[in-house]
């Protein structure tokens, strides 16, 4: 169901600008992001990676510019677009089970009031199975490992019925084996024609596994095949104002 025709969709960004009060978070971004693969949003802290992700989701008001996927405003693309939060942003002590979180994936379609039907339950069960979480469905979410927590949010996005996944720093805080496992999983999604757009600060990881990248520093520095977009010259441009931090540069 996720094959073929979505692959030729292209996100078109024209002059996308976002201000928070007086601070400019995104400055006239014009770019095209092809769907059907793994795309990384790269840049230093505060470069606007999360802001761009939220803009692509369609609910963050743009100060100027526009974003379209095909002919559509992203707001009208739900449930195709799914958001996967940064693990640090979630309240892990919330009294909720893994199965309940995955079931939240049906809420965008059902809204506040409509009840779950058999088809909704089936989608949730299928998503739990796909991400190998079925045995953990009744656990409180704090008791999961980092990799399992990340998979839980991917499962929620799958249950939503999405084929375009917007991930905010999915590798943050994962150990080596969980990182490898997540990369393997996302590569499987790429083969199925699913689209993953992820904000990632780890350049080595992007170089090794993400074929396509956008380099940001409030404005767009470069976009395209990763090797070209993350050239030394471009990285110098993006990181020039920053004090060098161990590990932030290759």
């Amino acid at each position: 169901m996720h094959s073929g025709h979505h692959q030729h969709d292209i996100f078109r960004l024209r002059d996308v600008t976002v201000h928070y009060g007086r601070r400019c978070a995104l400055d006239r971004i014009t770019a095209q992001i092809p769907c059907g693969g793994l795309v990384a949003l790269v840049g230093p802290n505060g470069a606007g990676k999360s802001t761009l992700l939220r803009s692509l989701l369609g609910w963050l008001p743009l100060t100027a510019g526009e974003i379209r996927l095909g002919d559509h405003h992203p707001r009208h693309l739900h449930p195709r677009l799914a958001y996967v939060p940064q693990r640090a942003e979630v309240e892990w002590d919330f009294p909720v089970s893994v199965g309940e979180v995955v079931a939240q994936g049906r809420w965008p379609a059902l809204g506040l009031f409509r009840r779950f039907r058999d088809s909704d339950h089936a989608l949730v069960t299928k998503a739990l199975a796909e991400l190998e979480l079925a045995p953990l469905a009744d656990e409180q979410i704090r008791r999961l490992s980092g990799g399992q927590q990340q998979r839980m949010f991917l499962a929620r996005a799958v249950a939503q019925g999405a084929d375009i996944f917007l991930l905010d720093e999915p590798f943050n805080g994962l150990d080596l084996s969980a990182t490898a496992e997540l990369i393997h999983l996302l590569q499987g999604w790429q083969a199925q024609g699913r689209t993953v757009i992820a904000a990632i600060h780890d350049l080595a990881l992007v170089r090794a596994h993400f074929p396509h990248a956008l380099l940001l520093d409030t404005r767009l520095i470069a976009a395209g095949p990763t090797a070209e977009a993350l050239s030394d010259a471009n990285l110098d441009l993006a990181y020039r104002h920053r004090v060098p931090v161990l590990g932030a540069r290759p």
Partner: peptide, 20 residues
């Protein structure tokens, strides 16, 4: 009436926005 909205507003506000 609003329990889904309340849960998401506490648990994951960004997802609440994308859910409308």
């Amino acid at each position: 009436l609003l329990r889904r909205g309340i849960v998401l507003e506490i648990f994951d506000p960004v997802f609440a926005r994308t859910a409308g």
